[in-house]
Computed example of a mutant assay.
Amino acid sequence: MALALKLAAAYLRNCYEGPSGISQYEQLIMRSLDDEESVPHAYPTTLVQAINLCWRRLAEQHDEAHQRAVFALQCAAFTESRQIPLQILLAAGVVDFDAILNFDTADGVLAYGLSNPPVGEIWRAMRS
C-alpha cells in the first residue's frame, strides 16, 4: 500500500501539479477502471460497472441499517485494506468528531453503541 501511495503522489506531483489535481487524477483512475476494451474475454462488464450496480442496490435502500452500511463503506473506502472492527467503523457515523479529538484512551475504546439498528442488521445490509 505504501508503494501505491508513493506512486500516486509522484504522479499527482508530476502530472497534475500536486494535490490540486486530485479530482482529475480520480477521473483518470475511474476512466481506466471503466475501459470496456480492457475487460477480459467472457467477462460481462467492467469493474466499475459491477461496483456501481452493487453500490446502487445498497444505496437505494432507505432503512437506517442500509444507510449506516453506506456510511461505513464510504469510510472504509479511505482506509487501508485491513480488518477494521465493524463497531469502530460504525462509530465514525455516530460519534462527534470533537469527542474523538478529546477522547482519553484510558476510558476505553470508542465504538458503535446504538441498539437500533443493531450491528448485525447493518452487517446484513452491507452483505446484501
Rank of each mutant, 00 (worst) to 15 (best):
F78G: 12
L90H: 11
H41T: 14
D63G: 02
Q24V: 05
A65W: 00
C15E: 15
I88W: 04
H66L: 00
V109E: 15
Q24W: 05
C75P: 00
Q27G: 15
S38M: 13
A59V: 07
V39G: 01
W55E: 00
A8F: 04
W123H: 03
L12N: 08
S128Q: 07
Q87G: 07
G113Y: 03
A111K: 12
H41D: 15
F78L: 14
S20M: 09
A106E: 06
Q87V: 06
G93D: 05
Y25F: 15
M126H: 01
A72E: 11
L101T: 03
E26Y: 13
D107P: 00
Q67I: 01
I84T: 02
L3A: 12
V109Y: 07
E37Q: 11
F97E: 07
G120V: 02
M30D: 09
N14S: 14
A8T: 05
D96F: 12
G108M: 04
L90P: 09
C75W: 10
N14F: 12
P44I: 09
G113L: 06
P44S: 12
L86Q: 03
T45G: 07
S128I: 02
L110I: 09
A106H: 07
L114N: 13
E64R: 13
I29C: 12
G113F: 02
P40Y: 01
V39Q: 04
H41M: 13
L90S: 05
L90K: 08
A50Q: 10
S32F: 12
E17Y: 07
I22C: 13
L53F: 05
Q61A: 07
V109C: 07
L53C: 10
Q74D: 09
L89G: 01
E17Q: 14
Y43I: 13
R127C: 08
E64F: 02
L3E: 14
P19F: 15
G21L: 13
R68E: 05
L28S: 06
G93E: 06
E60A: 09
G21T: 12
A92N: 05
E37G: 01
R31A: 11
E26T: 15
